[in-house]
Simulated scan of single mutants.
Amino acid sequence: MARHALGPATLAVVQALEGAWRDPERDPDGSWLVGCSGGPDSLALALGAYEACRRAGALSRLGAVVVDHDLQQGSAAVAATARDRLLAIGYPSEAVRVVRVVVDPEQARELGIEAAARNARYAAFEQVAAEAPVETEVLLGHTRDDQAETVLLGIVRGSGMRSLAGIAPRRGPYVRPLLDLARADLRACCAENDLAWWEDPANADERYARVRVRHRVLPVLAESFGGDGAVSAALARTAALARVDADFLDALAEAAEEDAVVPATERAGDELDCTELAFLPEALRTRVVRRWLVGHGSREPGAVHVAAVCALVTHWHGQKGVDVPGLRVVREEGHLRATGAPRDGDRGPA
Protein backbone atom coordinates (compact mmCIF):
# COMPACT_ATOMS: atom_id res chain seq x y z
CA MET A 1 0.00 0.00 0.00
CA ALA A 2 1.46 3.35 -1.07
CA ARG A 3 2.35 5.72 1.78
CA HIS A 4 0.61 9.10 1.78
CA ALA A 5 -0.40 11.77 4.24
CA LEU A 6 -2.68 10.31 6.87
CA GLY A 7 -6.31 11.37 6.87
CA PRO A 8 -7.89 12.53 10.15
CA ALA A 9 -9.54 9.19 10.94
CA THR A 10 -6.39 7.25 10.08
CA LEU A 11 -4.31 9.57 12.22
CA ALA A 12 -6.63 8.99 15.19
CA VAL A 13 -6.31 5.22 14.76
CA VAL A 14 -2.53 5.33 14.42
CA GLN A 15 -2.18 7.55 17.48
CA ALA A 16 -4.29 5.11 19.50
CA LEU A 17 -2.01 2.25 18.43
CA GLU A 18 1.14 4.26 19.15
CA GLY A 19 -0.23 4.84 22.64
CA ALA A 20 -0.79 1.11 23.04
CA TRP A 21 2.78 0.39 21.87
CA ARG A 22 4.14 2.81 24.49
CA ASP A 23 1.89 1.44 27.25
CA PRO A 24 4.11 0.66 30.27
CA GLU A 25 2.13 -2.55 30.81
CA ARG A 26 3.34 -3.88 27.47
CA ASP A 27 6.46 -6.02 27.46
CA PRO A 28 8.99 -3.79 25.63
CA ASP A 29 10.43 -6.88 23.96
CA GLY A 30 7.05 -8.37 23.15
CA SER A 31 5.14 -8.65 19.90
CA TRP A 32 1.64 -7.95 18.59
CA LEU A 33 -0.85 -10.27 16.93
CA VAL A 34 -3.81 -8.56 15.27
CA GLY A 35 -7.11 -10.41 15.20
CA CYS A 36 -8.66 -9.61 11.83
CA SER A 37 -12.02 -10.66 10.42
CA GLY A 38 -11.93 -8.49 7.31
CA GLY A 39 -14.54 -6.16 8.78
CA PRO A 40 -13.91 -2.40 8.99
CA ASP A 41 -13.00 -2.35 12.68
CA SER A 42 -10.31 -5.02 12.48
CA LEU A 43 -8.93 -3.74 9.16
CA ALA A 44 -8.53 -0.26 10.64
CA LEU A 45 -6.88 -1.87 13.65
CA ALA A 46 -4.51 -3.80 11.39
CA LEU A 47 -3.62 -0.65 9.44
CA GLY A 48 -3.01 1.34 12.63
CA ALA A 49 -0.88 -1.43 14.16
CA TYR A 50 1.19 -1.69 10.99
CA GLU A 51 1.85 2.06 10.89
CA ALA A 52 2.64 2.25 14.63
CA CYS A 53 5.11 -0.63 14.36
CA ARG A 54 6.63 0.83 11.19
CA ARG A 55 7.25 4.11 12.98
CA ALA A 56 8.75 2.24 15.94
CA GLY A 57 10.99 0.14 13.70
CA ALA A 58 9.27 -2.99 14.97
CA LEU A 59 7.51 -4.51 11.97
CA SER A 60 9.29 -7.80 12.65
CA ARG A 61 7.27 -8.04 15.86
CA LEU A 62 3.86 -7.69 14.19
CA GLY A 63 1.63 -10.48 12.91
CA ALA A 64 -2.03 -11.15 12.25
CA VAL A 65 -4.43 -14.03 12.41
CA VAL A 66 -7.68 -14.48 10.50
CA VAL A 67 -10.14 -16.95 12.00
CA ASP A 68 -12.56 -18.85 9.78
CA HIS A 69 -15.45 -20.06 11.96
CA ASP A 70 -16.95 -22.05 9.07
CA LEU A 71 -20.44 -20.94 10.15
CA GLN A 72 -21.51 -19.19 6.95
CA GLN A 73 -21.39 -20.21 3.34
CA GLY A 74 -18.31 -18.75 1.71
CA SER A 75 -16.46 -18.21 4.99
CA ALA A 76 -13.21 -19.56 3.54
CA ALA A 77 -13.35 -16.98 0.75
CA VAL A 78 -14.02 -14.22 3.31
CA ALA A 79 -10.97 -15.31 5.30
CA ALA A 80 -8.82 -15.43 2.16
CA THR A 81 -9.92 -11.92 1.20
CA ALA A 82 -9.10 -10.65 4.69
CA ARG A 83 -5.62 -12.12 4.30
CA ASP A 84 -5.24 -10.35 0.96
CA ARG A 85 -6.22 -7.04 2.58
CA LEU A 86 -3.54 -7.54 5.23
CA LEU A 87 -0.93 -8.25 2.56
CA ALA A 88 -2.01 -5.09 0.74
CA ILE A 89 -1.45 -3.07 3.92
CA GLY A 90 2.10 -4.40 3.99
CA TYR A 91 2.04 -7.48 6.23
CA PRO A 92 4.45 -10.13 4.91
CA SER A 93 2.75 -13.38 3.97
CA GLU A 94 4.62 -15.34 6.64
CA ALA A 95 3.23 -12.99 9.33
CA VAL A 96 -0.42 -13.70 8.48
CA ARG A 97 -2.12 -16.91 9.60
CA VAL A 98 -5.55 -18.15 8.56
CA VAL A 99 -6.97 -20.56 11.11
CA ARG A 100 -10.11 -22.58 10.62
CA VAL A 101 -11.86 -23.45 13.88
CA VAL A 102 -14.67 -25.78 14.88
CA VAL A 103 -17.34 -24.23 17.09
CA ASP A 104 -18.25 -26.58 19.93
CA PRO A 105 -21.91 -27.60 19.40
CA GLU A 106 -22.42 -28.19 23.13
CA GLN A 107 -21.22 -24.68 23.91
CA ALA A 108 -23.45 -23.34 21.15
CA ARG A 109 -26.46 -25.00 22.79
CA GLU A 110 -25.57 -23.87 26.31
CA LEU A 111 -24.12 -20.41 25.71
CA GLY A 112 -25.43 -19.43 22.28
CA ILE A 113 -23.67 -19.43 18.96
CA GLU A 114 -22.07 -15.99 19.50
CA ALA A 115 -20.38 -17.01 22.75
CA ALA A 116 -19.33 -20.41 21.39
CA ALA A 117 -17.80 -18.80 18.29
CA ARG A 118 -16.01 -16.25 20.46
CA ASN A 119 -14.55 -19.01 22.63
CA ALA A 120 -13.30 -20.85 19.56
CA ARG A 121 -11.85 -17.67 18.10
CA TYR A 122 -10.06 -16.70 21.30
CA ALA A 123 -8.66 -20.20 21.68
CA ALA A 124 -7.19 -19.86 18.18
CA PHE A 125 -5.71 -16.45 19.02
CA GLU A 126 -4.08 -17.81 22.16
CA GLN A 127 -2.70 -20.86 20.37
CA VAL A 128 -1.05 -18.74 17.67
CA ALA A 129 0.23 -16.24 20.26
CA ALA A 130 1.71 -19.07 22.34
CA GLU A 131 3.81 -20.17 19.38
CA ALA A 132 5.68 -16.86 19.35
CA PRO A 133 9.14 -16.84 20.96
CA VAL A 134 8.32 -13.70 22.97
CA GLU A 135 5.34 -12.47 24.98
CA THR A 136 2.61 -11.62 22.49
CA GLU A 137 -0.40 -9.39 22.93
CA VAL A 138 -3.52 -10.02 20.86
CA LEU A 139 -5.06 -6.81 19.51
CA LEU A 140 -8.83 -6.65 19.04
CA GLY A 141 -10.83 -3.96 17.27
CA HIS A 142 -13.62 -3.19 19.75
CA THR A 143 -14.88 0.38 19.58
CA ARG A 144 -16.65 2.90 21.79
CA ASP A 145 -19.92 1.75 20.21
CA ASP A 146 -19.21 -1.86 21.20
CA GLN A 147 -18.58 -0.60 24.72
CA ALA A 148 -21.91 1.25 24.81
CA GLU A 149 -23.78 -1.84 23.59
CA THR A 150 -22.09 -3.99 26.21
CA VAL A 151 -23.03 -1.61 29.02
CA LEU A 152 -26.66 -1.46 27.89
CA LEU A 153 -26.85 -5.25 27.65
CA GLY A 154 -25.46 -5.51 31.17
CA ILE A 155 -28.08 -3.09 32.46
CA VAL A 156 -31.08 -4.80 30.86
CA ARG A 157 -29.87 -8.21 32.03
CA GLY A 158 -29.59 -6.99 35.60
CA SER A 159 -25.89 -7.76 35.75
CA GLY A 160 -23.53 -6.47 38.42
CA MET A 161 -20.73 -3.95 38.54
CA ARG A 162 -18.29 -6.04 36.50
CA SER A 163 -20.74 -6.27 33.61
CA LEU A 164 -21.49 -2.56 33.86
CA ALA A 165 -17.74 -1.97 33.59
CA GLY A 166 -18.02 -3.27 30.05
CA ILE A 167 -15.09 -4.31 27.87
CA ALA A 168 -11.69 -4.04 29.52
CA PRO A 169 -9.05 -2.18 27.48
CA ARG A 170 -6.51 -4.76 28.64
CA ARG A 171 -7.16 -8.20 30.12
CA GLY A 172 -4.76 -11.10 29.99
CA PRO A 173 -3.17 -11.23 26.53
CA TYR A 174 -5.94 -9.13 24.97
CA VAL A 175 -5.58 -5.42 24.24
CA ARG A 176 -8.31 -3.23 22.76
CA PRO A 177 -6.64 0.03 21.71
CA LEU A 178 -9.66 1.52 19.88
CA LEU A 179 -12.23 1.70 22.67
CA ASP A 180 -12.10 5.51 22.63
CA LEU A 181 -12.94 5.68 18.92
CA ALA A 182 -16.36 5.37 17.29
CA ARG A 183 -17.25 2.69 14.77
CA ALA A 184 -17.72 5.48 12.21
CA ASP A 185 -14.11 6.59 12.76
CA LEU A 186 -12.84 3.14 11.78
CA ARG A 187 -14.98 3.01 8.66
CA ALA A 188 -13.67 6.45 7.75
CA CYS A 189 -10.11 5.17 8.27
CA CYS A 190 -10.72 2.31 5.85
CA ALA A 191 -12.29 4.67 3.32
CA GLU A 192 -9.33 7.06 3.54
CA ASN A 193 -7.03 4.16 2.63
CA ASP A 194 -9.23 2.52 -0.05
CA LEU A 195 -9.60 -0.61 2.11
CA ALA A 196 -12.71 -2.48 1.06
CA TRP A 197 -14.22 -4.35 3.99
CA TRP A 198 -16.53 -7.28 4.57
CA GLU A 199 -19.94 -6.73 6.15
CA ASP A 200 -20.76 -9.64 8.46
CA PRO A 201 -24.43 -10.49 7.83
CA ALA A 202 -24.76 -11.44 11.51
CA ASN A 203 -24.40 -7.74 12.33
CA ALA A 204 -27.81 -7.16 10.77
CA ASP A 205 -29.51 -10.22 12.29
CA GLU A 206 -31.87 -8.96 14.97
CA ARG A 207 -32.19 -12.39 16.52
CA TYR A 208 -29.09 -11.32 18.43
CA ALA A 209 -29.62 -9.01 21.41
CA ARG A 210 -26.55 -6.93 20.61
CA VAL A 211 -27.86 -6.23 17.10
CA ARG A 212 -31.23 -5.12 18.49
CA VAL A 213 -29.46 -2.77 20.89
CA ARG A 214 -27.37 -1.40 18.01
CA HIS A 215 -30.20 -0.84 15.55
CA ARG A 216 -33.18 -0.16 17.80
CA VAL A 217 -32.19 1.00 21.27
CA LEU A 218 -29.15 3.22 20.71
CA PRO A 219 -30.75 5.23 17.87
CA VAL A 220 -33.74 6.05 20.10
CA LEU A 221 -31.43 7.10 22.94
CA ALA A 222 -29.35 9.20 20.55
CA GLU A 223 -32.46 10.93 19.23
CA SER A 224 -33.68 11.66 22.76
CA PHE A 225 -30.43 12.54 24.50
CA GLY A 226 -28.05 13.81 21.85
CA GLY A 227 -26.68 12.51 18.58
CA ASP A 228 -23.17 12.39 17.14
CA GLY A 229 -22.12 9.65 19.51
CA ALA A 230 -22.94 11.54 22.71
CA VAL A 231 -24.87 8.63 24.21
CA SER A 232 -22.21 6.06 23.32
CA ALA A 233 -19.53 8.32 24.76
CA ALA A 234 -21.50 8.74 28.00
CA LEU A 235 -22.02 5.00 28.34
CA ALA A 236 -18.34 4.41 27.70
CA ARG A 237 -17.47 6.90 30.46
CA THR A 238 -19.85 5.04 32.77
CA ALA A 239 -18.02 1.81 31.97
CA ALA A 240 -14.65 3.40 32.72
CA LEU A 241 -15.83 4.70 36.09
CA ALA A 242 -17.46 1.40 37.00
CA ARG A 243 -14.31 -0.47 36.02
CA VAL A 244 -12.22 1.48 38.53
CA ASP A 245 -14.58 0.45 41.34
CA ALA A 246 -14.92 -3.12 40.10
CA ASP A 247 -11.15 -3.57 39.83
CA PHE A 248 -10.71 -2.29 43.38
CA LEU A 249 -13.39 -4.61 44.77
CA ASP A 250 -11.97 -7.56 42.84
CA ALA A 251 -8.53 -6.89 44.32
CA LEU A 252 -10.02 -6.80 47.82
CA ALA A 253 -11.92 -10.02 47.13
CA GLU A 254 -8.77 -11.74 45.92
CA ALA A 255 -7.05 -10.85 49.19
CA ALA A 256 -10.10 -11.92 51.24
CA GLU A 257 -10.21 -15.23 49.40
CA GLU A 258 -6.79 -16.14 50.78
CA ASP A 259 -8.23 -16.06 54.32
CA ALA A 260 -11.51 -17.75 53.42
CA VAL A 261 -10.17 -20.71 51.42
CA VAL A 262 -9.36 -23.89 53.29
CA PRO A 263 -6.63 -25.77 51.37
CA ALA A 264 -7.50 -28.98 49.54
CA THR A 265 -7.16 -32.31 51.30
CA GLU A 266 -6.88 -35.84 49.98
CA ARG A 267 -10.63 -36.30 50.20
CA ALA A 268 -11.78 -32.93 48.93
CA GLY A 269 -10.78 -29.89 46.93
CA ASP A 270 -10.34 -26.52 48.55
CA GLU A 271 -13.30 -25.31 50.61
CA LEU A 272 -14.59 -22.00 51.92
CA ASP A 273 -14.69 -21.22 55.62
CA CYS A 274 -18.21 -20.04 56.46
CA THR A 275 -17.05 -18.06 59.49
CA GLU A 276 -14.60 -16.06 57.40
CA LEU A 277 -17.23 -15.49 54.72
CA ALA A 278 -19.82 -14.33 57.23
CA PHE A 279 -17.61 -11.44 58.37
CA LEU A 280 -17.07 -10.15 54.83
CA PRO A 281 -19.16 -7.30 53.40
CA GLU A 282 -21.66 -8.62 50.86
CA ALA A 283 -19.79 -6.98 47.96
CA LEU A 284 -16.69 -9.02 48.82
CA ARG A 285 -18.47 -12.22 49.91
CA THR A 286 -20.29 -12.57 46.59
CA ARG A 287 -17.07 -12.02 44.67
CA VAL A 288 -15.16 -14.57 46.74
CA VAL A 289 -17.93 -17.14 46.27
CA ARG A 290 -18.17 -16.54 42.54
CA ARG A 291 -14.39 -16.83 42.08
CA TRP A 292 -14.44 -20.08 44.05
CA LEU A 293 -17.32 -21.50 42.00
CA VAL A 294 -15.60 -20.67 38.72
CA GLY A 295 -12.37 -22.15 40.05
CA HIS A 296 -14.22 -25.40 40.67
CA GLY A 297 -15.52 -25.47 37.10
CA SER A 298 -18.93 -23.83 37.38
CA ARG A 299 -20.08 -22.51 34.01
CA GLU A 300 -21.02 -18.85 34.24
CA PRO A 301 -22.70 -18.84 37.68
CA GLY A 302 -25.29 -16.06 37.75
CA ALA A 303 -26.26 -13.71 40.56
CA VAL A 304 -29.07 -16.02 41.63
CA HIS A 305 -26.66 -18.94 41.99
CA VAL A 306 -24.11 -16.92 43.94
CA ALA A 307 -26.85 -15.58 46.23
CA ALA A 308 -28.10 -19.11 46.90
CA VAL A 309 -24.62 -20.29 47.84
CA CYS A 310 -24.11 -17.22 50.06
CA ALA A 311 -27.38 -18.09 51.83
CA LEU A 312 -25.68 -21.26 53.06
CA VAL A 313 -23.48 -18.87 55.02
CA THR A 314 -25.75 -16.00 55.98
CA HIS A 315 -29.09 -17.81 56.32
CA TRP A 316 -28.05 -21.28 57.36
CA HIS A 317 -30.90 -23.51 58.60
CA GLY A 318 -29.73 -26.95 57.58
CA GLN A 319 -30.27 -26.73 53.82
CA LYS A 320 -29.22 -29.82 51.88
CA GLY A 321 -27.23 -27.82 49.38
CA VAL A 322 -27.37 -25.65 46.29
CA ASP A 323 -27.13 -26.61 42.63
CA VAL A 324 -25.29 -24.16 40.38
CA PRO A 325 -24.21 -24.58 36.74
CA GLY A 326 -21.89 -27.58 36.70
CA LEU A 327 -21.66 -28.06 40.49
CA ARG A 328 -23.45 -28.91 43.69
CA VAL A 329 -22.40 -26.99 46.80
CA VAL A 330 -23.08 -28.20 50.33
CA ARG A 331 -22.25 -26.89 53.79
CA GLU A 332 -20.57 -29.40 56.06
CA GLU A 333 -18.61 -28.85 59.27
CA GLY A 334 -18.69 -25.09 58.79
CA HIS A 335 -17.23 -25.23 55.29
CA LEU A 336 -18.67 -24.88 51.79
CA ARG A 337 -17.75 -27.86 49.64
CA ALA A 338 -18.17 -28.43 45.91
CA THR A 339 -19.35 -32.00 45.43
CA GLY A 340 -19.60 -32.38 41.68
CA ALA A 341 -22.36 -31.99 39.13
CA PRO A 342 -25.93 -31.08 40.14
CA ARG A 343 -28.20 -34.02 40.64
CA ASP A 344 -31.09 -32.89 38.44
CA GLY A 345 -29.78 -29.95 36.46
CA ASP A 346 -29.18 -26.44 37.67
CA ARG A 347 -32.11 -26.02 40.02
CA GLY A 348 -30.93 -23.36 42.45
CA PRO A 349 -31.30 -23.89 46.20
CA ALA A 350 -32.32 -27.33 47.37
Rank of each mutant, 00 (worst) to 15 (best):
His4Glu: 11
Leu17Val: 12
Glu18Leu: 09
Gly19Ala: 12
Gly19Val: 05
Asp27Ala: 14
Gly30Arg: 06
Ser31Glu: 12
Ser37Trp: 02
Gly39Ile: 00
Ser42Asp: 11
Cys53Asp: 02
Gly63Ile: 04
Val66Gln: 01
Asp68Met: 03
Leu86Ile: 08
Ala88Cys: 07
Arg97Tyr: 11
Arg100Ile: 07
Val103Leu: 09
Arg109Asp: 14
Glu110Val: 14
Arg121Trp: 01
Ala132Pro: 01
Glu135Asn: 05
Thr143Glu: 07
Glu149Trp: 07
Val156Trp: 09
Ala165Lys: 06
Ile167Ala: 07
Arg171Tyr: 08
Arg171Thr: 10
Arg171Ser: 11
Asn193Arg: 15
Asp200Thr: 10
Glu206Ala: 13
Glu206Tyr: 07
Val211Ser: 06
Leu218Ala: 10
Ala230Thr: 15
Ala230Cys: 07
Thr238Ala: 14
Arg243Ala: 15
Ala246Asn: 12
Ala246Asp: 15
Asp250Pro: 03
Ala253Glu: 06
Ala256Thr: 03
Ala264Phe: 14
Thr265Glu: 09
Cys274Gln: 01
Pro281Asp: 13
Arg285Asn: 02
Arg290Glu: 15
Gly295Ile: 06
His296Asn: 04
Ala307Tyr: 08
Ala308Gly: 14
Ala311His: 10
Gln319Ile: 06
Gln319Met: 10
Asp323Lys: 02
Pro325Val: 11
Gly326Phe: 12
Leu327Ile: 03
Val329Thr: 03
Arg331Phe: 00
Glu332Gly: 01
Glu332Arg: 15
Asp344Trp: 11
Pro349Asp: 05
